[in-house]
Design a protein around this nucleic acid. Sequence first.
DNA 1: TATATATATCCGGATCTATGCATCTAGTCA
DNA 2: TGACTAGATGCATAGATCCGGATATATATA
Lengths: 140, 140
Amino acid sequence: MKVAVRFFRALGDEARLKILWLLLNHRELCVCDVMAIVGIGQSKASRHLATLRQAGLLTDRKEGLWSYYSYGPSSDELASAHCELLRSTLARLPDAEELLDRLKGWLEVSRHGASCTKDAASAFVAGKGAMTTLRKGNNR
Amino acid sequence: MKVAVRFFRALGDEARLKILWLLLNHRELCVCDVMAIVGIGQSKASRHLATLRQAGLLTDRKEGLWSYYSYGPSSDELASAHCELLRSTLARLPDAEELLDRLKGWLEVSRHGASCTKDAASAFVAGKGAMTTLRKGNNR
DNA sequence: TATATATATCCGGATCTATGCATCTAGTCA
DNA sequence: TGACTAGATGCATAGATCCGGATATATATA
């Protein structure tokens, strides 16, 4: 029973759902990417990614200083089926569209500028990236 | 985002998965039934059922002293789809078969005896019902 | 009305989880 | 080698969750 419980627990967090949604829409992201797009700190991003990986939802790949995470492939086809459903579920939620906008914006910035860095991610969160996407109020 | 998080959190507990599994295999059960079959106390059974109801997975119906819970129908068809998948997921786990045995045994007992009562449920847990199904060790 | 009972909820404590900060690890590059 | 950096992890704390036992609520029945 342990496996199923851990799987659903991993999905029981807003930040993790956002991360999963991003990785269902983009092949792979590093920790900096997640920081910039979701607008969270480094340790939080790293830990949530680790949780999703331990639940069998993500795989990671190291390249130089960066850790790249990508969706699946979980060995369990039922978990995969749940995630396919999750794609539909998350697509209808209000944040979904906004997150994809931020993803797009971030990728453009990081493509031009230097390689993906923590500082660039922080700047993106504080600057234009956040400005253009956060409509009402701010992130808390 | 709240809705999805609450939905998956409700599934992130072993006892709740067991209850859901039972209600995916039997039209409706009262709190006593759940106590007897899963082998948990009254307040725990009541609380977990309430959690599942609040997550939109169960509906309840009052009749006299008893509260009967049944699966769905969640208004969200995607949640329903997840539960259909869950049926397959849970069916493969070792406890699943055992729980259905206990369900069957309990229904026979309670059909003969008086109506469903807490005492009868406790007796079932402590007596034959538990003996025939708990193979190795006991439920803590 | 008075008693009995199934279920819901409250109350404490124990345990788990999330988070920010600081530090550690392991790559890169000069 | 030494400075620098992305990412992982230790630590402490706040908050959430879980649990058993006690109590409250609502209904049935005498």
